[in-house]
Design a protein around this nucleic acid. Structure first.
Lengths: 218, 218
DNA sequence: CGGACAATTGAGACGCGTCAAAACTCGTGG
DNA sequence: CCACGAGTTTTGACGCGTCTCAATTGTCCG
């Protein structure tokens, strides 16, 4: 899909190495603000562990979760003077931090890092575009189903998947109310599309039958 | 807002120069497809005249207009192997085209161009994010009002502003039906927030009273 | 003038938001 | 170990805004 599939040097993307070698570890409690929208950007971060939400608050106080970020995702790629998003820890999160000036210096010295940065920005654009498509013409159930699929894919865990964020977080991501997310999840569970373990663990039943069994709900 | 406000060399952004000196002019009729989603990307374009819409078609056939582009805007910034968006001429559009390989070569030779590219990608991310916010928690009238404001600002013409795209285009941009866009425009006109000249020219009445006059509609 | 297409307006249905209440979870302390 | 309380999740009822379908009007060009 991307042109840079073959990277000559090492197997790991350049920016990952940068953060692993030069990053300072910082830990954030659930709900903690890593960076606030409008604040001057002094650091660039990479998620090492946990989950981070990138939010935008509109003047009227509404929130949109533009993206959930897991390990390997970089915060502040745009290198703008101020943070355009608020970055908040969803659960206990550990990040690698590099001062912006140092990051830019390392970037200037490494064409591979520049290419990695470019690829990641393109990926960010495509993710935003995909969210725009998802939230334009699909029902609440469709949005939640697609979100869960994507999330499961990004965590590539075959079994039980942890869902660290709240229903409201998911709603603010998918442009739905908290209640609509609840109802959609309940519908998916009732229809046998997902299994729930408590409220924050789910699983896709690997249906060998091809999903034709409808559990004769109606 | 952006860090790169002071660019040392010339007044024009680097990529603009690139396209003006090395670009091949190509003309497209209204509705023509400049590049199709999924097609291999052979060229990078810059809009010279006219208006272009960047669309994404979902598997179900729904369309989202991710962005409208005017003169100066670059198509294919991401340099992915394939076009992730369909680029379509809204009206008669003239574009400057550069082959991808040549573009990348020029890019490698010019740090200023790289920085310009980075800035433009950040701007793209921010524009997408703004659209995500706009289409999450606002009514049809609010979306259309904001869209018209933005569009007027981007065209920075004080007087009558041409609206080259159809109501359906606007709807697919704002995640509204064509009819809802119509109704919203009618409402704005009735309430005196905009003036209409035909269906494709509008104007914001520069109210010196500060917008307190409500035209006693109710 | 006529025809095709876009824009507008209307009527009705449906889905989601809102408000409200109940059930559940989890940590704390008796 | 159980009781308690705060916060989250779930379910219910209802109203409203937007979508859909349909008809009319308007616009542009041959």
């Amino acid at each position: 899909m991307t042109r840079c599939a073959s990277r000559s040097d090492t197997g790991a993307p350049s920016l990952s190495e940068l953060f692993e070698t030069s990053g300072i570890k910082r830990r954030f409690n659930p709900g903690a603000t890593i960076a606030a929208q409008g604040e001057r950007q002094a650091w660039v971060y990479m998620v090492a562990r946990g989950c981070v939400r990138s939010c935008i608050y509109s003047p009227e106080g509404h929130r949109r979760v533009v993206r959930f970020r897991g390990p390997g995702s970089v915060l502040g790629l745009g290198l703008a003077a101020e943070w355009t998003t608020s970055e908040e820890a969803v659960d206990m999160a550990v990040l690698e931090a590099i001062p912006v000036a140092a990051f830019e210096a390392m970037l200037a010295a490494s064409p591979a890092a520049q290419r990695d940065l470019h690829d990641r920005m393109r990926e960010e654009i495509e993710a935003h575009a995909a969210l725009l498509v998802l939230t334009s013409n699909s029902s609440a159930v469709d949005r939640v189903r697609e979100f869960l699929k994507d999330f499961a894919r990004s965590r590539k865990s075959g079994g039980l998947i942890s869902l660290p964020m709240s229903r409201r977080d998911i709603g603010d991501h998918l442009a739905l109310s908290m209640e609509s997310v609840c109802r959609a999840i309940s519908t998916l569970k009732r229809d046998g599309e997902i299994d729930l373990k408590g409220a924050s663990f789910f699983r896709f039943p690997e249906q060998d039958a091809g999903g034709l069994a409808v559990h004769c709900a109606a």
